[in-house]
């Protein structure tokens, strides 16, 4: 602790003196962090869309065409009592026709040309938030279609499941690509800082001769790697933020990473730099 000021000054001086090698190391971290950041942003945004859709999830239950109002009432009571259903709204055949016309006004004549309203009565079931995973929705729907007088039940099952799968794939691929690029960044930081360390091997030798411990020699280099990692991470975050803002000017509704993500990413970038640096300096300590 008593050496902390010395280590910080040395690390900053070394970064300042590093020139093109330091710039290359920062760039390597930036590149890796940016790719990781793009995947993380895609994941977070897909996840957000998924959550929003899931919270608005409902199941349309179509009743058999010949069902009368009294029967519909009985079915509705039954559906409303099913586990996981929070509300069952009745949509009469007339209301369905009105909704149809509202949705497709140009087809109004088509409906009027028919002698009888072809649309069945239905219930719109709203689900409790705790019952909204694709598996649970499927289980509820299974019970619904088994009810006598129910013709069919429709909901955005496949689409929702696909969206969740896409978010998972993006997350996994992102983590894998980020991991590989992170390892590559560590190697690049290792070799660039390795060159910087090589240039200062005399300093290391002198320090060891006058009684410096390995830890004392290593600390400023680790500090240097940490600064390089953090700078690379910051540049990547700035670029990512710029990219998100740019998309927004084109009215693409994209969210920037939440604080926990970018803070974690920044910490990882710093760690990658520090590890790369520690590994590089290790070779020169055997004096």
């Amino acid at each position: 602790m008593k050496h902390l000021g010395f280590f910080a000054r040395e690390a900053l001086k070394n970064v300042g003196r590093g020139g093109i090698l330091t710039a290359a190391a920062i760039l390597a971290v930036t590149f890796a962090a940016l790719i990781g950041g793009i995947f993380a942003t895609a994941y977070v945004n897909l996840r957000t869309i998924y959550e929003e859709l899931r919270s608005e999830l409902y199941v349309d239950v179509y009743l058999a065409y010949e069902t009368d109002e009294a029967q519909a009432q009985v079915i509705g009571d039954h559906l409303g009592r099913l586990a996981g259903v929070s509300r069952a709204d009745y949509i009469s055949r007339e209301a369905a026709a009105e909704e149809f016309v509202g949705l497709f006004p140009e087809d109004k004549e088509l409906l009027e040309a028919l002698s009888e309203n072809p649309l069945p009565a239905s219930y719109r079931l709203y689900l409790r938030p705790e019952y909204d995973t694709p598996e649970e929705v499927a289980a509820i729907v299974e019970q619904v279609v088994a009810v006598e007088g129910v013709d069919d039940a429709v909901y955005a099952q496949e689409w929702l499941a696909n969206l969740e799968r896409a978010a998972k794939v993006v997350g996994v691929v992102g983590a894998a690509v980020g991991g590989v690029l992170g390892a590559a960044a560590i190697l690049v930081v290792m070799s660039t800082i390795g060159l910087a360390v090589y240039a200062r091997r005399d300093t290391i030798e002198v320090m060891k001769i006058v009684g410096a411990t390995d830890g004392f020699v290593r600390a400023p280099f680790i500090g240097e790697g940490l600064i390089i990692g953090l700078l690379g991470g910051l540049v990547a975050l700035a670029a990512l933020y710029g990219g998100v803002e740019f998309l927004r000017t084109y009215h693409v509704e994209v969210h920037f990473l939440p604080a926990s993500y970018w803070a974690g990413g920044l910490a990882l970038a710093g760690l990658a730099g520090a590890i790369g640096s520690a590994a590089a300096v290790r070779r020169f300590l055997k004096v």
Binding site: R17, D202, V206, V210, G211, T213
Partner: peptide
């Protein structure tokens, strides 16, 4: 032990032909 060596070196001053000063 390796980690004890620095403490020995603090009791021994060394001077070299090529001075080994840090020019920066």
């Amino acid at each position: 032990r390796r980690r004890e060596v620095p403490y020995l070196r603090r009791r021994i001053g060394v001077v070299f032909q090529d001075f080994r000063l840090l020019n920066e």
